[in-house]
C-alpha cells in the first residue's frame, strides 16, 4: 500500500483550490475526469493520467467554490460557492443544468446519493441537511439536526452549524458533521434521525463511508484526529492520530483498505486501516491541502488506483495508489 507522485500542476487555478472530485467514467466518456473548484470562482476539469486541462475553466460562481460532488452516472456534477448557490452542471460542456438554493441558509458540503437520485447538502447555520431530487431538481426535504439534550452551546449561538454530509454506499444511512464535533446519523430511507456520534470536539469538515462496509464512517476533524465510527451501532471503533493541524478532507480508497487525508499541516497522509496507522506522508504541497479524492473504479481498462489532492498553493497533484 503506497502512494507515488505522478504529476503535479502548479498554478492549476489562479487562486487557492478548495474542492476536488472525480466524475466517474460514463457511457459517452471512457475515463473518469477530475474536477477542481477554487477561490478564483471557476471549476476546471482534468484528464486522469497526465492532468491535462480539459476545456477552459467554467465560470458561473460569484464567490469561491467550496465544495464539489459528482453524480455517480458521471455526466453531472454539483458545485457550491460561498454565495451558497449550488450550480449543477454538465461535466463535459460545463453548461449549467440547474441552480439550487435554500435561502436563507448557506450551503457547505454536498454529496450525491450513491444511486444518484438525490443530492444532499450541508446547510451551515440553518442546522440542517437539505435534500433535492435529481430529476426535477425540486427540494425534497430538510433534515434538522436535533440538539442533544443539555448540550453545550455553539459559538454561533444558533444551533448546530452543519459542515459536511456523507451517504453510506448502500444509501441507507446519511451522516452530517457539525462544527461542535458531533455527527448526526439519519435513516436515509425513512428520513428519520437515528443518533449522534460523539468523540470529536471541533468542526468535522469531511466525512466518508467505507465503500466496502456500509457501517463504517471515517471522519476528518479540526482536532487533528481521524475517527472511525460504526455508524449504525453508534460506536467509536478507531482513532488515528498523526496530523499536526486540522484535518480538512478525507477519502476512502475503492478497495476499502486505506484512507487518505489532507490537512492544514500541508501534507497528504495515507492510512492503513488494518494497522490503524499512517503509512505514508506526502509533503509536496506548500500550503494547506483542502481536498483529497480517490478515483472511483470503472472506466475502460482502468485498474490502477489514483489519488488527487488540491491545495491552497494553487496546485493539483496526482498520485498512483497501489
Amino acid at each position: 500500500m503506497k502512494l507515488a507522485g505522478l504529476k503535479s500542476v502548479d498554478g492549476a487555478h489562479e487562486e487557492s483550490i478548495w474542492a476536488a472530485a472525480w466524475a466517474p467514467a460514463a457511457d459517452h466518456r471512457p475515463t473518469a475526469v477530475l474536477l477542481t473548484g477554487a477561490l478564483d470562482e471557476t471549476v476546471r476539469a482534468w484528464l486522469p493520467d497526465d492532468l491535462a486541462a480539459l476545456g477552459s475553466p467554467t465560470r458561473g460562481h460569484a464567490l469561491g467554490v467550496v465544495s464539489l460532488a459528482a453524480h455517480p452516472a458521471g455526466s453531472l456534477a454539483a458545485a457550491v460557492s460561498l454565495d451558497s448557490f449550488i450550480r449543477v452542471f454538465d461535466v463535459d460542456t460545463g453548461a449549467s443544468v440547474a441552480t439550487l438554493e435554500a435561502p436563507p441558509s448557506e450551503i457547505w458540503g454536498v454529496q450525491f446519493h450513491p444511486k444518484g437520485n438525490a443530492l444532499a447538502a450541508a446547510g451551515g447555520g440553518s442546522g440542517s441537511v437539505k435534500l433535492w431530487d435529481t430529476e426535477k431538481w425540486k427540494a425534497i426535504t430538510s433534515l434538522a439536526v436535533p440538539r442533544p439534550e443539555g448540550a453545550r452551546p455553539d459559538k454561533t449561538g444558533s444551533g448546530k452549524f452543519v459542515l459536511s454530509v456523507a451517504w453510506s454506499p448502500d444509501g441507507r444511512l446519511l451522516a452530517c458533521g457539525s462544527m461542535d464535533g458531533t455527527i448526526a446519523v439519519y435513516d436515509a430511507v425513512r428520513m428519520k434521525f437515528l443518533h449522534h456520534l460523539e468523540g470529536h470536539h471541533m468542526p468535522v469538515r469531511s466525512m466518508v463511508f467505507s465503500p466496502v462496509d456500509p457501517h463504517v464512517l471515517f471522519t476528518a476533524c479540526d482536532d487533528c484526529h481521524v475517527h472511525i465510527y460504526d455508524a449504525r451501532e453508534k460506536g467509536l471503533v478507531g482513532a488515528m492520530s498523526g496530523h499536526a493541524s486540522w484535518v480538512l478532507s478525507i477519502d476512502a480508497s475503492p478497495d476499502g483498505l486505506a484512507v487518505a487525508t489532507g490537512s492544514s499541516d500541508r501534507t497528504v497522509r495515507l492510512w492503513d486501516l488494518n494497522m490503524r496507522t499512517s503509512v505514508q506522508t506526502m509533503s509536496n504541497h506548500s500550503d494547506q491541502v483542502w481536498a483529497v479524492a480517490f478515483r472511483p473504479p470503472g472506466g475502460a481498462g482502468v485498474r490502477a488506483g489514483r489519488l488527487a489532492s488540491a491545495s491552497d498553493d494553487k496546485s493539483v497533484s496526482l498520485y498512483d495508489y497501489s
Binding site: S16, G64, E106, G124
Partner: peptide, 15 residues
C-alpha cells in the same frame, strides 16, 4: 476579498 473568503472558508461558523 479573496483574503476574506479564505477566512470564511476556514471558519465557516464565524459570523
Amino acid at each position: 476579498i479573496h483574503h476574506l473568503q479564505r477566512w470564511v472558508h476556514c471558519e465557516p461558523w464565524n459570523q
